[in-house]
Design a protein around this nucleic acid. Structure first.
Lengths: 251, 251
DNA sequence: CGGTTACTTGATCGAGCTCAATTAGTGTGG
DNA sequence: CCACACTAATTGAGCTCGATCAAGTAACCG
């Protein structure tokens, strides 16, 4: 025993919903202590996934939902003719795998974009809890709704005709989600490849590069490989058709 | 009283989940009699909506989900720059309004495409029931999952580059859903305008017309205004990349 | 360091958008 | 019941945006 005393043992630190920094976004949001404890008791943390490691695959039977704790996940569907289509990038605090609630089988595949840790929530136990605690039930519904709203947003995005519009939407959306997580919304690293971005936005790989180059040209942002600094977020928001972020309201 | 005896009073016929022809698709699917009764007791049927009449609008607070009983509904989101984007057409047995589960407010607007009747399900009562009856809870989850899978399918559809591919996907999807409802999958009437279809598919109005004309040219289908007869469904499925429908399995 | 993957940039081409003119329905009110 | 107005659908001509193909560069990894 003593021999091991000096080893830093991560497993020694109890990771729990109670001390998770994402509690304000994730399932625990606003839950009273009792329900939080119950929830925490059914959730298992898995060893971190490495880049490209899969959470689940299309067709898999599904017994768990996953909440991203750190890192990032992408999920995609494989259509019958074989080509793949990315339907979402998932940041910490977001729920992955809800597509399986329908018939108990996943309709998409999910994999880590970088080193990523997730919380695994057993669906059956969650349902049992949800029927006992209305608060937990409400949380599940809230996150489900969020997933749906996100899907709708992507639909709107893909409806835009202009490639610039799509790229701007993507960046504004990402920036906003990062901000809500307390991360910098002005500079961040894209965890996905240009090809991924293109696939997601319905654009060719080359077009993604060109658009980023053009935006840099115009001084809207700086880009070096995956690293992005946004200088003029309002400009991007204007492209999308969103109002300028309210900082001080003028008359 | 006697005077009215001859009037055919629809309200005299008790419409209930028990005798609804959609019970195999809708919330009641597979529920035991007790749960079915409970479910039926909280559901209200509204007077039929006429074309263009709205079920709810974006931003509305939401206390109900709606199940389409007959007719058809379209739902769309209005983006900040004002243009509208159709995100779904809803057939009998499908659930409308689940986008509001997240924060209790609708993110889209829904309106009848033709004379349409719906069942109104109070969310709160549904949740109460769901916590008492696991079967009902499972049903809600199943339909939610279905909505999500549908959203994903639309995403895949919009990922297709070719306009013909999109149109074929749309027709195949519609045909399949009609068939599952016991309706003809070879000939049916599009309840939406060409503009609606174009909006939904991310195509220009003109392109929709041209595509239908072209498919008719090729003998794949017949089209007169809204009325469509599909002659070669397999051809459409092939365009999409789906296998030919299994009728007899050959070796 | 060699091999692989990710990214950048250029030139060309075509699918589908736009705009416009015309026809076919649909509905409304006198 | 018809005339008028309005909406929906069709079809054509020209043009633009972004896909495709290709060649070259930069980062990463064993």
């Amino acid at each position: 025993m003593k021999k091991r005393a000096r080893v830093i043992r991560m497993s020694g630190y109890k990771v729990s919903c109670q001390n998770c920094s994402l509690a304000g976004l994730c399932l625990p949001k606003g839950l009273p202590a009792v329900e939080l404890n119950e929830l925490d008791s059914i959730i298992k943390r898995r060893a971190p996934l490495r880049r490209h490691e899969r959470l689940f695959g299309a067709g898999d039977g599904c017994r768990f939902l996953y909440a991203v704790r750190s890192g990032a996940v992408k999920s995609w569907v494989t259509s019958t003719n074989g080509d793949e289509r990315i339907i979402g990038f998932h940041l910490p605090g977001e729920l992955v795998g809800v597509d399986a609630l329908g018939d108990g089988h996943h309709s998409c595949t999910a994999a880590a974009l970088e080193t990523t840790s997730v919380c695994r929530v057993p669906i059956e136990a969650l349902n049992t809890l949800a029927s006992a605690y209305p608060g937990i039930n409400a949380q599940v519904q809230r996150l489900l709704g969020e997933v749906l709203v996100q899907a709708n947003e992507l639909l709107v995005l893909l409806g835009k005709k202009g490639a610039t519009e799509r790229m701007a939407s993507f960046l504004v959306n990402l920036s906003g989600r990062l901000r809500r997580r307390g991360l910098s919304h002005r500079e961040f690293s894209l965890t996905m490849t240009r090809r991924d971005v293109g696939n997601y936005l319905g654009l060719a790989l080359g077009t993604v590069c060109r658009l980023l180059a053009e935006l840099q040209e115009q001084g809207v942002l700086n880009v070096h490989r995956r690293y992005i600094q946004i200088h003029d977020l309002d400009y991007l928001r204007a492209i999308v058709g969103l109002p300028v972020l309210p900082s001080v309201v003028r008359l």
